Structure formats: C-alpha cells, structure tokens
Simulated assay, not measured.
Amino acid sequence: MTLENIILEQEKGIATIFIHRPDKLNALNKATIQELHETLALIDNNPDVRVVIITGSGEKAFVAGADIAEFAHFSTEEGEQLAAKGQQLLFDFIENMKTPVIAAINGFALGGGLELAMACHFRIASDNAKMGLPETSLGVIPGYGGTQRLPQLIGKGRAMEMILTAGMIDAETAKNYGLVNQVVPQSELIGFCTGIAQKIMRNSPVAIAKAIEAVNANYTSGVNGFDVEIKNFGACFATDDFKEGTTAFLEKRKAEFTGK
C-alpha cells in the first residue's frame, strides 16, 4: 500500500501515524481518511502492534479540520454520504478498534481534527494545542461525530458552548474540561505518549480489547454496558492470558502475555 498523506513508523510494538499534509495543515480529505482506514485495519489485525499513536506532521497542527474545498459545493445527499462514509471508515472504526489508539494533539485540532482526536481512546495534548469545532461559522455542523462525542467527554453545556460559538479552547482548558488527559511541552509529546503506550503493553492484549468493548458499550444506544462487562469478564477466563496473568501473580513474577 502506497501512503501519500500519512507517514507510518513502527517500533517495539508501537505504531505511530503522522498525518502529513503540510501545505493544508494536515486537513482531512477523502483520500487521507481512506489511507488511515486501510492502515489502521492492517494494524488492528497485526499482533505485533500493541498500541497506536496518531499525531500530525510538523509543529503547527494535529489536524486543522476537514478539507473544505473538497465539499464546498456538495448537495444535501452528498453531504450526508460524506459524513456517513467518514464515520464508518475512520471515526467509528477507531473508537471500536481492539488496539488502543492515543491521540497526540500537537497544535491545532479543529473540526474534523478534533473529531478524530475524540474518536481515539484518549488524548494527550502539547502545551500549544488549540481545539474547537468551528463548523457553525461555515454554515454547517460537525459531521464526523462531534455533536455526540464532545458532550460525552465534557458535558452538554460546555459542548453546546463550544459548538454554538465555534470558539477554540487552549490545552489547559481542554484538560480542565476532561477533553484531554494530560498537557505536556510539545518537544515531549511523543515521548510522553510512548511512555503511556509502554505501560499499556505490559498488560494483556485480550483483556485490553475486552475492556475497550465494555467501556464503549455504555455509550452505544440500545446496549446494556453492564451486560457486556459481565460477558467479557467471563470470556477472559477462557484465555491463555488469564491463566498466565493469574499464575504469574501467584508465582510473584512478571506476566508474559501472548494475546491469546
């Protein structure tokens, strides 16, 4: 697969994806969404990759939004199709990956960029990051899950304010809101995320995938998250990782998980 809009680096169980459209501040277009989907689909089925970090190329932007020129003249039907396909291919796909995905927000994360970050399992921001959903200033609304995920993360009132004013917030405000977990200097961002990834990789890949599924169930309409937790808890008992984890604990040694 030839990658034109992203750069993929893989080392010691961590896949780092750089969205690389420097002339567009890494704005998302259909081609980039497709590349991300295909790359992430391969990663999610690769047992050698235990954690994914998504970030933007350069120092100015994570993703500064969607590529407006691509859809400025769309019809109602084309707009609906754009949102539906994007959510299916990328945003919902990331949220439901069994491999943990960390958003390393370096600089601007606006519109589709913030929606991409919110689809990841959690977010770390550089101290110069700016976040917002400016779509209403363009006469449209967020279409890649922003109206749904932002209230889940920061509450309805704050989400309404951000969406209706089309304003930006800085990294510290985002942390106070609960939109990002940590704020670090930009020069330390990838290293910090790598450190978290290494902590994740000490644990069972099977259990992590089951935990992601159970947490997401609480935010899925018509699904009882407690039932999913009970089912997934029981399913873990049949895994090699459970046997290894409990045996290692009783033997007072470090567990060596295989992901089976």
Rank of each mutant, 00 (worst) to 15 (best):
E95F: 09
N26Q: 03
G107N: 01
E115P: 06
F74M: 08
G157W: 02
Y177K: 05
F74K: 02
S187I: 12
R21W: 05
T2L: 15
Q88W: 04
F93C: 06
F192L: 05
A214F: 00
S204W: 09
Q152R: 15
F62Y: 14
E77G: 03
T246M: 11
A41W: 06
E172N: 13
G112C: 02
E161H: 12
A104I: 01
I17L: 15
K24I: 02
F237I: 11
G195H: 10
F108G: 06
L40I: 11
M168R: 12
S187D: 14
Q198K: 15
G259P: 07
Q182P: 00
Q182A: 13
F242E: 04
L133F: 04
A235I: 05
C193G: 14
E244W: 01
A217N: 10
I6A: 08
I7A: 01
F62E: 11
T147Q: 07
A117L: 09
A27P: 04
K85W: 06
N128H: 08
I105V: 14
I208W: 03
E78P: 00
N224K: 06
P47T: 04
M118H: 03
S137I: 10
Q182K: 14
K156E: 14
K210A: 09
K254G: 12
K12D: 15
A15Q: 09
V206A: 09
Y177L: 15
E229H: 04
K85D: 11
L25E: 14
L164Y: 09
T2W: 09
C193Y: 08
M118V: 05
G107R: 03
S126W: 02
D227R: 13
A211E: 05
K60V: 12
K24R: 00
I19L: 02
